[in-house]
Design a binder for these strands. Structure first.
Lengths: 136, 136
DNA sequence: TTAAGTGCAAAGGCTTTGCAGCATA
DNA sequence: TATGCTGCAAAGCCTTTGCACTTAA
């Protein structure tokens, strides 16, 4: 792993992250890891999340709240939709490259990360909360 | 204020948020408020940030890290660009309505909040870090 | 063998909360 | 006057760090 020794703990963590359908925060990851190896510590989880992220093995996303979610890096760019009713997170494809190009041109920024965050109510929940629409 | 009494502290906090050009987190807001009224407490700052946000007076944005920034709600939608080099935050206009419409159609979501988060290097900093480009 | 990783426990930040006193409407 | 806000201090969370021990290569 690029100069970093492979350890039992790292294997376990990566395996769990891969198995999860994404949307795993540090705490959940720790809980799941702890179920399978109850000697693992939170420190190890955090340290390895940082490492994996640095090595580009996983993506770090902010989904609502202040908490981060981590997921295996996918080939396809995708973004997340968070339902304020049931908390469901939906992935969807959404090419941001046009926007990114525009920003590069207009602002002279070289963009390294682009994330679109959408919050709202899914089909089911928007029926229950008819008033919450319309901000857009 | 919609059933909520006007207080010295609320006036002060709103005034500071208005004067700031945005990009104020809770800690900075507390520091600034404390400079003018050293009896104000962090609890009051947090409680009122939540209140203002609930009343729609301010916007809550996640700019890098896990921290939130708060700013007075602007008429114009705008998004933020965060420079990984110098930490500068740039506002720019960027209509997301097309994307939002697409999501509504394809996923049946009614979107209440849309945020584009871009990270990268500004003109100055990308000169110093020529390798960091190219992710897009 | 040795550089690196791990667990534990403690410390660090930021945010929230309970409570008694105070202020607004 | 009554509801709601405030300050204080303590507690809560999540995350990071120091240190001694363990492990992969």
């Amino acid at each position: 792993m690029q100069g970093h020794p492979q350890t039992r703990q790292r294997d376990l963590l990566l395996q769990i992250i891969r198995e999860a359908d994404g949307h795993l925060d540090a705490k959940k990851l720790f809980t799941l890891a702890n179920d399978r190896d109850n000697s693992i510590s939170t420190a190890t989880v955090y340290r390895n999340l940082h490492l994996f992220s640095k090595l580009g093995l996983i993506d770090e996303k902010r989904l609502g709240q202040a908490r981060c979610s981590y997921e295996i890096k996918h080939a396809k760019q995708h973004q997340h939709l968070v339902c304020g009713g049931c908390g469901k997170v939906v992935d969807f494809e959404c090419p941001l490259s046009e926007l990114v190009d525009k920003v590069k041109e207009e602002q002279g920024f070289s963009v390294t990360k682009a994330e679109l965050y959408l919050e709202g109510y899914c089909t089911k929940c928007s029926k229950d909360k008819p008033g919450k629409d319309s901000a857009w």
